[in-house]
């Protein structure tokens, strides 16, 4: 059974890490979760991002869900937002494509141009 005491341990560990590297968020991931996105598999896309973050221990990444973005024909749609860089929008995402984006874009800093459907604001 998970208890709040487990959380206390996690908090202590996380605070130690933050002292070492600062608490900055390097990349923000925004998963489109409108009705059409959900029908096309956005929940599995979200889940795969969360799994990859946990498995790879990525502590400087933030994931959020948002509503419709007017790109219904390319759902599921995901934005990657990095400070000082133009926003990158990936479309027609699947769990496998998410894994590739995590390795290439988030870990190695290279945009996966095959999956990009829009850039900029």
């Amino acid at each position: 059974m998970k208890t709040l005491a487990d959380l206390k341990k996690i908090r202590e560990k996380a605070q130690e890490e933050m002292k070492l590297r600062g608490g900055n968020v390097r990349i923000k991931i925004v998963v489109g979760m409108g009705t059409s996105g959900i029908a096309m598999g956005a929940r599995e896309v979200m889940k795969t991002f969360l799994e990859e973050i946990a498995n790879r221990n990525l502590t400087d990444v933030l994931v959020t869900q948002t509503g419709e973005k007017g790109l219904s024909s390319m759902e599921p749609v995901v934005d990657l937002i990095e400070e000082g860089k133009p926003k990158v929008t990936y479309g027609n995402m699947t769990p496998d494509k998410v894994k590739k984006v995590v390795v290439e874009h988030i870990v190695n800093g290279r945009t996966v141009s095959d999956y990009v459907v829009a850039t900029g604001n």
């Binding site: 998970k2 959380l7 996690i10 996380a14 968020v25 969360l50 973050i53 990525l58 933030l62």
Partner: peptide, 11 residues
């Protein structure tokens, strides 16, 4: 500590 912290996701 954000909810996206890896151990928190697992929790």
């Amino acid at each position: 500590i954000p909810l996206t912290y890896p151990d928190v996701i697992e929790y």
